[in-house]
Amino acid sequence: LRQRHVACLARSERGLGFSIAGGKGSTPYRAGDAGIFVSRIAEGGAAHRAGTLQVGDRVLSINGVDVTEARHDHAVSLLTAASPTIALLLEREAGGP
């Protein structure tokens, strides 16, 4: 079961505080899956403080732009754009009992 949710992050002077992996033109985060995933969350960064991202979340869109088939460098450029806030649509595998 997959759950979707939106995370809104305000960029700090240190950026957004998370890294992505995967996407076309880069090493897959999961074998056989060209999706883009949250690969790291920086301690004390914007994403960590927001508490809405988890490592392993699939990134579906960035500020309304679909990145499900995107190249890695395109997703990075969307994240590093000048916008002071970033809205992410994420998909998470629902774990637990």
Rank of each mutant, 00 (worst) to 15 (best):
P28C: 11
D33Y: 08
T52Y: 05
F37M: 04
P97I: 10
R30K: 15
I62T: 00
A47P: 07
V55K: 05
A94L: 11
I36F: 03
G25L: 04
L79H: 02
E69C: 11
Q54K: 14
L78R: 03
L60W: 02
R30V: 15
R2C: 08
T85Y: 10
V65N: 09
N63E: 05
L16E: 03
L90S: 02
A47L: 05
I86V: 15
D66S: 08
L78Q: 04
V6Y: 10
A75K: 03
E93L: 06
A46P: 14
F18M: 09
D57M: 00
S39L: 03
S77G: 15
L89N: 09
L60N: 01
L78K: 03
G96Q: 13
A7C: 11
K24Y: 11
A47I: 06
G96F: 11
V65I: 14
F37V: 02
V55T: 07
R30N: 08
E43Y: 11
G95T: 13
L1K: 14
G56M: 00
A34L: 11
A42H: 13
L16S: 04
R30A: 11
I20S: 00
L60F: 02
F18E: 01
P28A: 09
S39T: 08
H5W: 08
A81V: 11
V76S: 09
Y29G: 07
R14W: 10
F18G: 01
A75C: 08
S61N: 11
F18V: 07
L79S: 00
R71E: 15
A81Q: 15
A70R: 03
I62M: 05
A10Q: 15
A46W: 05
A42T: 14
A10Y: 10
A42E: 13
E69L: 07
I86S: 03
A46G: 08
D66Q: 05
E69I: 07
S12L: 08
D66V: 05
G15S: 09
T85E: 13
P28K: 09
A10D: 10
G56E: 01
S61V: 07
G17K: 02
L1A: 07
A81L: 09
T52P: 04
H5D: 05
L53R: 02
A31K: 15
R49G: 10
G25Q: 05
S19A: 15
L79V: 06
G51Y: 02
S39Y: 04
R71Y: 11
S19T: 15
L60T: 04
I62E: 03
A42L: 13
H72G: 07
R58P: 01
G64D: 10
I86K: 04
G25H: 06
A94I: 12
L53C: 04
E13Y: 07
F18H: 01
G25S: 05
E43I: 09
A42Y: 13
A31F: 15
T85W: 08
F18P: 02
F18D: 01
A7K: 04
T85H: 10
S77A: 14
R2G: 08
A21Q: 13
H72K: 10
T68K: 07
V59F: 01
T52C: 10
R30G: 07
Y29V: 06
A50Y: 09
E13Q: 11
L79C: 06
G44K: 08
L90Q: 02
L16D: 03
E93N: 10
L53T: 02
G51N: 08
E93D: 15
